[in-house]
């Protein structure tokens, strides 16, 4: 399946991926409005790791045998059998954080405001992940089977 991969060596650490992740999951889908008008803007669904000069954004790997899906106590976390995308149904999620605990990558974020798990859904609605689309240095790649170096 197509996943988001990162070329750490050209990640500039600007965090625009985070800005556009928030925007993509906001009500207005517009940077300015997402930040200015939404009283509670969405929690980002990616984690940015930074230890200069190393930096990169980390997002759900959509594991084949996803531990988060297995361990979910309510069945909120599910893997789409067709697309392979792992998503969290926030209506069902009760915020027990078991998924956060079992994720080997640390890619699941606690949305404390809504007390639900927040994770990358590959911008399912938009088609292409917003972080990839807006990375100014093409450090993020949305591709089948990784990146060739």
């Amino acid at each position: 399946m197509k996943k988001v991969y990162v070329k750490e060596e050209v990640c500039v650490g600007c965090r625009l991926c985070e800005v556009y992740c928030i925007t993509s999951h906001s009500k207005y889908k517009d940077v300015l409005k997402a930040y200015k008008l939404e009283p509670q803007r969405p929690t980002p669904r990616i984690v940015i790791e930074e230890n200069r000069p190393v930096s990169f954004s980390l997002q759900c790997r959509h594991c084949d045998d996803a531990p988060c899906v297995k361990s979910c106590i309510t069945g909120a976390m599910r893997k789409d059998p067709l697309t392979g995308v792992v998503t969290c149904d926030t209506d069902k999620c009760v915020g027990c954080w078991t998924c956060v605990l079992v994720c080997e990558f640390g890619a699941i974020i606690r949305d404390v405001n809504n007390k639900v798990a927040s994770k990358c859904d590959l911008c399912a609605e938009a088609g292409e992940p917003a972080c990839v689309k807006n990375c100014p240095n093409e450090a993020l790649v949305y591709s089948e089977g990784g990146i060739s170096v």
């Binding site: 070329k7 060596e9 050209v10 000069p53 093409e138």
Partner: peptide, 13 residues
């Protein structure tokens, strides 16, 4: 030559 800055030029682009 600052590695933080050098990264900003992606040779691919």
């Amino acid at each position: 030559q600052d590695p933080n800055l050098v990264k900003r030029l992606n040779p691919e682009i």
